[in-house]
Design a protein around this nucleic acid. Structure first.
Lengths: 243, 243
DNA sequence: AAAAAAGCTGCGGGATCCCGCAACCCTGCC
DNA sequence: GGCAGGGTTGCGGGATCCCGCAGCTTTTTT
């Protein structure tokens, strides 16, 4: 068994190494990398069947690394190991996980015992091991009443990047009204129409557009990391469409 | 010497404990807490002259804890120990540090050697020890050309919370035009007028209001944590001003 | 004391946003 | 076939936002 560990915090790194070494008896080879780019580089020169991935790494996210890995070797077993249960990450992962891949999702705050179980479950028994909390978020995201549809999520991203309605329309290939319509649905889903809005005497207290961002952030649907990644996509698109 | 360590990640917790124990010879008492509320509780029952604070803790931030501590015992020595150099935190801290307090600011990513030096510097020699990187951010924030003034920062916060111009005006006790004027300056400072904006054929690509949020987040002027705290202030204000 | 800088304010107007209404696709289902 | 549901589109209008211009006060600088 050949294991690759990608984690930028050195403490967690050595901790993971220690636990892996005495939980996985048939560990032949172990490599450790500190950021996304290194991880991909390592994966290019060597063969690994198992990977532990920290999601928030400088420059290249864990999600992107996973995407890269699965694009090449879809049967690589990946254990995601992260701090928070941000919906943005979970959404990103469930979008790229190939049909019958083996993977796990565990929180850094989980007790060591759980980590050991996850290691064995994913890498030895080849099961999917998803943390309870994470599973909860996943459920909610799939629920089409409380969760956002893919279209609404796209709209949210564009909104948070600071685009105008017109630009959103152009980017997503819909009419102006179409873009506005998506935003409208987004507002509803986020609960912007609800009594959530305490009307003062000065009319409505909130600006839907910016309030939507605020809500999305506080509910963990989006985070700064995810936004940074989306910003790059946007810049690429802008370059290609300057006309 | 009585030391209090507040840190939610258990790995970092034990690491800190180990380093503190063999760097500070005259350590009489050592308490460790895992979140902000506990920290404050501990501080209420016992006396401590030195504290190590993680900034991002669940519920009550390190900044708030520091505020509490310094409000009672201004000569408590505090070492802030955190992951990132978010301007929001730095701004929060420099706002509450009492005149001649002894404190330090060090990054989790710093080598162990630096941590040891900081421990001794702050707790023994009673110097202020500020990490280079952090110092850089601090400088820029104080620079009135690149940094935001307190007023502009307030406007940014209100903007990010999703308020309308009208509500901002009411909250900050200025006229409607006054609020808009602040926003206008904010946009300038953030570089929203610059060539940063690649005009497509569809006119301007960005909505100033939302783009400002995007920029502020990506530049680390604000973060989700800081916003959550501000949201609470806002809710309080809303309650008091429903007329 | 004079000059400069920073901030607040009213006015006005063009651009943008938000959204109800109605019509028109599709797709899937009875 | 019929029919409901999700998504898109055009139209129209009221609310909001953005900002230049000009005048005012306050603070800081010279």
């Amino acid at each position: 068994m050949r294991l690759l560990i990608a984690e930028d915090d050195k403490l967690h790194r050595s901790f993971l190494e220690a636990v892996a070494r005495n939980t996985l008896p048939d560990l032949d080879e172990l490599t450790i990398t500190g950021d996304g780019a290194d991880t991909i580089a390592a994966f290019e020169t060597e063969e690994y069947d198992s990977v532990i991935l920290d999601l928030q790494m400088p420059k290249v996210t864990g999600v992107e690394v996973a995407k890269y890995i699965w694009a090449r070797k879809p049967n690589t077993k990946i254990l995601f190991w992260t701090n928070y249960t941000e919906e943005a990450y979970i959404r990103g992962i469930t979008k790229i996980v190939p049909g019958a891949a083996v993977y796990g999702y565990i929180l850094k705050s989980a007790p060591e015992e759980q980590l050991k179980l996850a290691l064995q479950g994913v890498f030895v028994a080849e099961q999917c091991v998803i943390d309870r909390e994470v599973r909860g978020v996943q459920q909610r995201a799939e629920d089409r009443l409380s969760g956002l549809s893919e279209l609404e999520y796209e709209a949210l991203v564009d909104l948070c990047l600071g685009l105008t309605d017109k630009t959103i329309a152009a980017r997503r290939n819909v009419s102006l009204r179409g873009a506005q319509s998506r935003l409208q649905h987004l507002y509803q889903k986020l609960g912007l129409d609800k009594a959530d809005i305490p009307l003062g005497v000065w009319g409505p207290s909130f600006n839907s557009r910016t309030r939507a961002i605020s809500l999305a952030l506080s509910q963990g649907i989006l985070n700064a990391d995810a936004l940074r990644r989306e910003e790059e996509d946007l810049q690429r698109w802008l370059r290609d469409n300057l006309v």
